[in-house]
Simulated scan of single mutants.
Amino acid sequence: MAEMKFKDRLVDLSKEKGVTLRKVAISIGIGVSTLSNYINSNREPMSSIVILLADYFNVTTDYMLGISDKRKQLELTDFTVEDLMKEIIRRCSNG
Results as ranks from 00 to 15, higher is better:
A2E: 09
E3N: 14
M4W: 06
F6C: 02
R9P: 01
V11S: 03
V11R: 03
D12Y: 04
L13N: 00
S14C: 03
K15D: 03
K17F: 04
G18M: 03
V19Y: 04
R22C: 07
S27K: 05
S27H: 06
I28K: 01
G29R: 11
G29I: 08
G29H: 10
G31R: 04
V32K: 05
L35H: 01
L35F: 05
S36E: 11
I39H: 01
I39V: 15
N42L: 15
N42G: 13
E44G: 07
M46Y: 12
M46W: 07
S47G: 07
S47D: 13
I49F: 07
I49A: 12
I49H: 11
V50N: 03
I51G: 00
I51Q: 02
L53K: 00
A54H: 02
D55P: 02
Y56Q: 04
Y56M: 06
N58M: 07
V59E: 03
V59T: 06
V59L: 08
V59F: 07
T60L: 08
T60P: 01
T61P: 05
T61G: 02
D62R: 00
Y63D: 01
G66Q: 05
I67E: 04
R71T: 02
L74G: 04
E75R: 12
E75N: 11
E75S: 10
L76S: 13
L76G: 14
T77W: 08
D78V: 08
D78H: 13
F79E: 04
F79A: 04
F79C: 05
F79I: 08
T80S: 15
V81K: 09
E82Y: 13
L84R: 12
L84W: 09
L84I: 15
M85E: 15
M85D: 15
M85N: 15
K86F: 15
I88W: 13
I88F: 15
I88D: 03
R90A: 13
S93T: 11
N94M: 14
G95N: 12
